[in-house]
Simulated scan of single mutants.
Amino acid sequence: MESLGTFLKRRRDQVTPAMAGLRTYGTTRRVPGLRREELAQLAGVSVGYYTRLEQGLAETASKQVLDAIARVLQLDPIETVHLHNLARQPSASGLSEPPEEQPHPRVIALLESLGEAMPAIVLGRRGDVLAWNRTGHALMAEHVPYDAPRDPARRPSMPRMFFLDPFTRDLHRNWDELARIHVAYLRLTAGRFPTDARLARLIGELTMRSSEFATMWAIGEVADCTVGTLDLRHPTVGAANVTYQVWLQPDSPDHRLEVYTPNDPGSADALRLLAHQSSRPAPAEQH
């Protein structure tokens, strides 16, 4: 997990004096980015207060102060949300085991209403697959048992699959781009749920088992994951370029219904073929 001080220090290092509109007059600097006193001055707070904030010694920070710091650090809206999330964390917060996630019945009803023509997946807060239709399963993870999401112990984890599963890596021709998004979204989630022991274990596992994840995590990017493009080389239907978009439900704001739509006629044909093949019962289901 990440502390407020770690985030502030990392982002302060990334903002040069020139980016902040400061003149250095050619003097030698020991730090790559802004000094604490420079950031404090630009944000309109005392150096002592900002130092305590970065060291985790300040009890609270007002919205106005955090917004001023975000402005100096040139954070985008999602990064600013992450800053506020980190600032709200209690200084002595420990990890706790959250209950098993269950998709809300209205989310399942919406998933079922889509039928099989549109691939769709319901994801939990940590990227676990809570449910999918057959076309979504066939598009994203046909090598995984279809009924795996029904058992919390067997649920596929999209972050794990992205970094540890060769099938998933081969599936995505734009793997590098999507992998960075997965890491950035996990960081945003970690800021929202700092005591989630399952999330902490996931981040720790991926850091230990994937050097690429560890490198991306160390960069410190923060991003939401609401819409984007998948450039696929599917083993069954061939090349497909699809847009993913996320639908959020007020009943379960931590869960995301992700649907996939084709970006060109060839991809539309591929999804139709996949839907047709997925609609046929598996041999074990035939009587």
Rank of each mutant, 00 (worst) to 15 (best):
7 F>I: 04
13 D>R: 02
17 P>G: 13
20 A>D: 09
20 A>V: 13
24 T>S: 10
24 T>W: 00
29 R>K: 11
33 G>S: 10
39 L>S: 08
39 L>H: 03
41 Q>F: 07
43 A>K: 04
47 V>K: 03
48 G>D: 15
54 E>H: 09
54 E>D: 10
55 Q>G: 10
58 A>V: 08
59 E>Q: 13
60 T>Q: 14
62 S>W: 05
63 K>W: 06
68 A>C: 10
71 R>K: 14
72 V>T: 15
72 V>P: 00
73 L>M: 12
81 V>Y: 04
86 L>E: 10
90 P>V: 10
93 S>L: 15
96 S>G: 03
101 E>R: 07
102 Q>M: 11
102 Q>D: 04
102 Q>F: 10
108 I>R: 09
108 I>T: 07
117 A>I: 12
120 A>R: 08
131 A>C: 09
134 R>Y: 07
138 A>E: 09
144 V>T: 06
149 P>E: 00
154 R>F: 01
155 R>K: 03
165 D>G: 12
165 D>M: 08
167 F>M: 10
168 T>V: 14
169 R>M: 14
180 R>V: 14
182 H>W: 00
185 Y>T: 14
186 L>V: 05
188 L>K: 10
193 F>K: 06
194 P>G: 09
202 L>G: 02
206 L>Y: 02
208 M>A: 12
209 R>Q: 13
216 M>I: 12
218 A>P: 00
220 G>Y: 13
222 V>A: 14
225 C>L: 15
229 T>M: 14
229 T>C: 14
231 D>E: 13
231 D>G: 01
232 L>A: 02
233 R>I: 02
234 H>R: 01
234 H>N: 05
234 H>I: 11
237 V>D: 05
241 N>K: 12
242 V>M: 07
245 Q>V: 01
249 Q>H: 14
249 Q>S: 15
251 D>P: 02
254 D>Y: 00
259 V>Y: 05
263 N>S: 08
263 N>G: 12
266 G>H: 04
267 S>W: 00
272 R>Q: 11
276 H>M: 15
276 H>G: 09
276 H>S: 12
281 P>A: 06
283 P>S: 11
284 A>T: 11
